[in-house]
Design a protein around this nucleic acid. Structure first.
Lengths: 116, 116
DNA sequence: ATCGTTCATCGGCAATCTACGATTAACGGC
DNA sequence: GCCGTTAATCGTAGATTGCCGATGAACGAT
């Protein structure tokens, strides 16, 4: 870990100020979750349906249930999805705010030097 | 090579229509390039400076020159950067349009179900 | 032509990612 | 209780990524 955590961190290698590094991490985390076509397809499908059960997503994709479940976990860990337990099934629904956060971070990227 | 505009992809097994598959790939490619904090930091630094030489970027980061060069290649392959040879040096400058394309693809993600 | 500078690429290593089958855990119905 | 269904997790093989030092290629200056 070379992460800069702790009180009074110098953070000398931080072009753009202290908060910039945090935003770098945040954007990178969200982008990484979006960085696989299958996960994008899952998200798109969920936005079309509003929400649906894991099995339905598996049916839409040419991958095994275990693989889809892992992709869902990545999206959920990034906050892009929420999963609610519904009986023996799990209902997934997308979180538009987190996606909007990703969009805002990208949009702010060119402006941080001039504005903030 | 992994440029933002695909030539012609067959690809049919996709929920959401033919073009959706292509957009999934395009967004995933861009997001993947943005999916590392060092690359986001490079991009942000370049937007602040407008453009600068590889060596200057290396000086800003706690990584070896070879590592930075690889990150630059990833960003360039995704189209987020352009590199111009300037004598013995290489001047990198960001491409706002490609970044805006990434933003648009994210923004469009929740809306594609409603207008197809 | 030779040298120093600058950057890309090569080779290698550890870590992470992606995919899968198999197994386990949780739930409803019988 | 005992099944069948659903989805998460385990274990693993193969590919990819991230990092580095070393080397190579392109250029300007001497």
């Amino acid at each position: 870990m070379k992460s800069a955590a702790g009180a009074g961190t110098p953070a000398e290698r931080s072009p753009g100020g202290a908060g910039a590094r945090d935003r770098d991490e945040e954007l990178a985390t969200l982008a990484k979750a979006l960085g696989h076509p299958t996960r994008v397809a899952i998200l798109r499908f969920l936005y079309r349906r509003g929400s649906c059960v894991c099995g339905t997503i598996v049916d839409q994709l040419p991958f095994a249930q275990a693989t889809v479940s892992q992709h869902l976990k990545v999206l959920k860990d990034a906050g892009l999805l929420q999963g609610e337990i519904d009986g023996p099934r799990v209902c997934y629904c997308p979180d538009p705010e987190v996606l909007a956060r990703a969009r805002d971070l990208i949009e702010a990227l060119p402006r941080e030097g001039t504005n903030r």
